[in-house]
Amino acid sequence: MAIKPKLFKQMTKLIAGSMSAGRYDVRLAESDAEVIDAQKLRYRVLYKESGGTVTPQMLNSEQEEDEWDEIAYHVVVLDRRNDNHVVGTMRLVSSTALKDAQQFYTEHAFDITGLRARYGKLLELSRACVSPDGRGGAILMLIWKFTMQFIEQNQYDVMLGCASFKGTDYLEHTEILSYLYDKHLASPELMPIPKPAVHSVSIKSFSETPGKGKERGKVPTMLRGYLKIGAHISDHAVIDPVFNTTFVAIYVDASYMFGSNHALVNKSVHH
């Protein structure tokens, strides 16, 4: 996969700086080599470590890549003490960058017609991962802070994506899914709806089980960050054997994240 030169030209028009914490720097990828390093990290974490289904092409390249990489902004965390190797990454795909008839990655599993009708400028977050030897918090914190700054400074209306839990046995995740359903369910008009072709399960079918829906301690760190800024989830979970995960659709209205001024600016721009 090679990024087209015009993509980096487009990036210069964004407000996208950099941040640092200790030995780590975070910014948008600036070269094909950095994107490839991010894809290699994704392969190691999202497939080899998590038990996903690896294709022959992945075995040869040791990279995880797809059609959205070419149009995406790749957030990378670089380790200055280790030759600036990529030790953390997040992929950002803007609705303004999608090609004709191209959908978000999330839309392979969910119909997000409600979100598209409500919001003018959408940003999909995906492929977030951190190197196993850097999971003490600093790398994830940098990815999170940089992405939130990117969303605010570039005036996105909503961010969306999928929140995943390891393993395809959804019964192992009933407590956390019940909690999310009880406390953070999307409104009916904005509800991401699972597509018929995917294997999904209604969370409501087990959320009313006595004793369920009360557990919050098992919420992953990244998801906890989403919930703190007003995230809402789908009422169905999708079973994904490719990544060996169970996941829900998730979105956050930027006006909840940054206040009414952000919403007013976006209203004047998009409506």
Rank of each mutant, 00 (worst) to 15 (best):
Gly120Arg: 02
Lys13Ala: 14
Gly225Lys: 02
Phe8Asp: 09
Ile250Ser: 02
Gly17Thr: 05
Tyr73Val: 01
Trp68Thr: 07
Val93Tyr: 01
Ser178Asp: 08
Met11Leu: 12
Met19Ala: 13
Glu62Val: 11
His232Pro: 08
Gln103Met: 11
Arg216Tyr: 11
Gly17Val: 05
Pro132Glu: 14
Glu107Trp: 02
Lys204Phe: 09
Leu115Ala: 01
Leu78Pro: 00
Asp157Leu: 01
Met90Tyr: 14
Ser268Val: 15
Leu142Phe: 01
Gly22Asp: 09
Pro210Asp: 11
His262Glu: 05
Met159Glu: 12
Ser131Glu: 15
Val158His: 03
Lys267Ser: 15
Ala128Asp: 04
Leu190Lys: 02
Tyr47Gly: 04
Ala186Ile: 08
Ser205Phe: 02
Ser18Tyr: 13
Pro56Cys: 07
Ser205Val: 03
Leu7Gln: 15
Glu172Trp: 04
Asp169Asn: 13
Val35Ala: 09
Val238Ile: 11
Val35Tyr: 00
Glu175Cys: 13
Tyr181Leu: 01
Gly136Trp: 08
Lys228Met: 10
Pro5His: 10
Ile15Cys: 08
Leu125His: 09
Ser205Pro: 03
Asp69Arg: 03
Ala197Gly: 05
Arg224Ile: 07
Arg224His: 06
Asp235His: 14
Ala29His: 05
Gln102Ile: 00
Gly230Val: 01
Val35Asp: 06
Ala138Glu: 12
Met191Val: 00
Gly136Arg: 08
Gln149Ala: 08
Ala101Ile: 07
Val269Ile: 15
Pro5Val: 09
Ile36Arg: 12
Lys214Ala: 13
Val158Cys: 14
Asn60Glu: 14
Ile229His: 10
Thr113Trp: 01
Ala21Ser: 15
Met159Asp: 06
Val219Thr: 14
Glu49Val: 06
Val248Asn: 07
Phe206Met: 02
Asp37Cys: 15
Pro132Arg: 14
Phe104Cys: 00
Glu34Val: 10
Phe110Leu: 05
Leu227Phe: 00
Ala197Pro: 01
Pro210Ser: 07
Leu190Glu: 09
Val238Phe: 01
Gly225His: 05
Val265Ile: 14
Arg27Phe: 02
Thr168Cys: 09
Ala2Asn: 13
Pro192Glu: 03
Val238Tyr: 04
Glu107Arg: 03
Ile176Trp: 10
